[in-house]
Amino acid sequence: MSLDRVADLRRWEDSGAHWCVLTRTVHSLTIALLRCDGGEEVDRFTSTDPRLLDFVGARTSSEDPERPV
């Protein structure tokens, strides 16, 4: 079963929590999920999903504006 990390990040943001990119390569991202106060790391994951790479784009965190579609 494949995880939908884009949906995961959208739900995380919709709940008021934050995320940040810890590591970025050409083909993967490692993302930390942070508490809603922007503080403590709750979880992290690494993904090579091209949809996630496209969704995150050049952003370094959920605080950066999404690029226009």
Results as ranks from 00 to 15, higher is better:
residue 52 L to T: 06
residue 26 V to I: 08
residue 10 R to F: 00
residue 20 C to G: 07
residue 61 S to I: 04
residue 48 T to Y: 10
residue 29 L to I: 08
residue 55 F to C: 01
residue 65 P to M: 03
residue 61 S to T: 11
residue 8 D to P: 00
residue 60 T to V: 04
residue 32 A to V: 00
residue 11 R to Y: 02
residue 24 R to L: 09
residue 62 S to V: 02
residue 23 T to A: 10
residue 40 E to V: 07
residue 16 G to R: 08
residue 63 E to W: 11
residue 11 R to M: 06
residue 63 E to A: 14
residue 7 A to S: 13
residue 62 S to M: 04
residue 27 H to W: 09
residue 39 G to S: 08
residue 63 E to Y: 05
residue 6 V to F: 05
residue 24 R to P: 07
residue 12 W to A: 01
residue 38 G to K: 09
residue 42 V to K: 09
residue 47 S to P: 08
residue 56 V to T: 03
residue 63 E to M: 12
residue 1 M to N: 09
residue 35 R to E: 15
residue 12 W to L: 12
residue 48 T to M: 08
residue 55 F to M: 01
residue 51 R to T: 03
residue 8 D to Q: 14
residue 37 D to G: 10
residue 26 V to P: 00
residue 41 E to R: 15
residue 62 S to H: 04
residue 46 T to M: 10
residue 41 E to W: 00
residue 2 S to G: 01
residue 15 S to H: 11
residue 30 T to K: 09
residue 45 F to A: 04
residue 38 G to A: 10
residue 61 S to R: 05
residue 29 L to V: 12
residue 51 R to A: 15
residue 68 P to R: 12
residue 29 L to F: 08
residue 31 I to Y: 05
residue 38 G to C: 10
residue 27 H to M: 07
residue 19 W to A: 01
residue 38 G to N: 10
residue 9 L to N: 03
residue 11 R to I: 04
residue 62 S to A: 12
residue 52 L to E: 06
residue 46 T to S: 14
residue 38 G to M: 10
residue 46 T to H: 02
residue 32 A to Y: 02
residue 47 S to T: 15
residue 23 T to N: 12
residue 19 W to N: 04
residue 69 V to A: 15
residue 52 L to M: 07
residue 9 L to E: 03
residue 56 V to L: 05
residue 3 L to P: 00
residue 34 L to G: 01
residue 54 D to C: 07
residue 68 P to S: 11
residue 27 H to R: 15
residue 65 P to E: 13
residue 17 A to I: 00
residue 47 S to W: 06
residue 13 E to Y: 00
residue 8 D to C: 02
residue 28 S to Y: 04
residue 32 A to N: 08
residue 50 P to G: 01
residue 14 D to Y: 00
residue 28 S to I: 01
residue 17 A to R: 14
residue 22 L to Y: 03
residue 62 S to K: 03
residue 63 E to V: 05
residue 35 R to M: 09
residue 46 T to G: 12
